[in-house]
Simulated assay, not measured.
Amino acid sequence: MKLDSLLVLVVFLILFTACKDEVLPKPKAMLRLDYPEASYKKIDGDCSYTFELNTLSNIKENKDCSLVLDYPMMKGSVYLTYKPVENNLKTLLTDAQKLSYEHVVKADNIVEQPFINPEDGVYGMFYEVSGNAASQSQFYVTDSTNHFVTGSLYFYAKPNYDSILPAAVYLQKDIRRIMETLRWEE
């Protein structure tokens, strides 16, 4: 009889402790990455161009006026390359466009956005790349006679568009700011 009572007690305890609220899975959520509002400062140097730079970036200057704008918080960099125009504008434009479309294999879409600033003689193209491409943005600007600058955005990680999208959008705004504030020095 004691064994029956003990068995009933164990079954009762199991049923009593098992009667809890139903476990529900957590709803899907998106990672929220907030970056500080950008503040800019003008970059002057010995090069043939100036622009406004986000103060969150670290600048590394090469001897040929090519720059690397490093964003350690976002684990990415914008690479700027300067080339003088010496009767080679068509070749420079072809190379810049070719570089942008090398990402078409992995990209879902590439959107071209022309840039025209006739007051300051700055003309170019901004390429927004969506998908798991190596570079999320490319651009070039020129005055069509003397100066040509290309730029590319790269992250220090294997491309995963969903994960890097917030940082890519933030840095694309910086790239547009570079294009809008770029001025040629004589």
Score class of each variant (00 low, 15 high):
L69P: 06
C47G: 13
D21K: 05
I14S: 13
Q113T: 15
L33I: 07
G121E: 09
V104R: 12
V141W: 03
L24P: 00
V11Y: 09
L89A: 11
Y79G: 05
Y40C: 09
I164R: 13
L15E: 08
A107C: 05
P159T: 06
D34V: 06
Y35R: 02
A29T: 11
V11I: 14
H147N: 14
F139K: 04
V169K: 15
D64E: 12
G121R: 15
T181S: 15
G121V: 03
C65T: 10
E102Y: 10
T50H: 02
G124Q: 13
Y140M: 07
S5V: 07
R176T: 09
G45I: 04
V8S: 13
P36I: 05
A167N: 01
V129Y: 02
V149T: 03
V85W: 10
T55A: 04
V104N: 09
K26P: 00
V169R: 14
S77H: 10
K20R: 14
L89S: 12
T150G: 09
D46W: 06
A167D: 00
A107Q: 07
P72D: 00
K98I: 09
N132W: 06
K42H: 08
S77G: 07
S163D: 08
K20S: 13
T17I: 08
S66Y: 05
G45Y: 05
E52Y: 03
L99R: 15
M179V: 13
F16N: 02
G151R: 10
D4N: 12
I14Q: 10
K90E: 09
L33K: 04
Q138V: 08
G131I: 00
W184E: 05
S163G: 01
N109C: 02
A96E: 03
L3Q: 15
Y71I: 00
I110N: 10
K173Q: 13
D70F: 04
P27C: 02
I164C: 03
L69S: 06
M73H: 11
I116G: 06
E186Q: 07
I175H: 10
K90I: 09
F148A: 11
V129H: 04
D4W: 13
V10G: 00
T142H: 14
S144M: 12
L80V: 03
K42S: 07
S137Y: 12
V23I: 11
K26S: 02
K90S: 14
D4C: 14
Y140V: 03
T181A: 02
T91C: 07
H147G: 01
F139N: 02
G76L: 01
V141C: 05
A168Q: 10
Y35Q: 01
N58D: 05
L93Y: 04
V129M: 02
G45S: 14
D21M: 02
M179R: 10
P72K: 08
V122K: 11
E185W: 03
N160Y: 09
Y156L: 11
M30A: 13
L171R: 07
L9A: 12
G76N: 05
A96P: 05
L53K: 13
F12R: 00
S57M: 08
S100L: 03
T81E: 15
M74L: 13
E119W: 06
S130Q: 03
T145S: 15
Q172W: 01
T142D: 10
S77V: 04
V105N: 10
L9Y: 08
K90F: 04
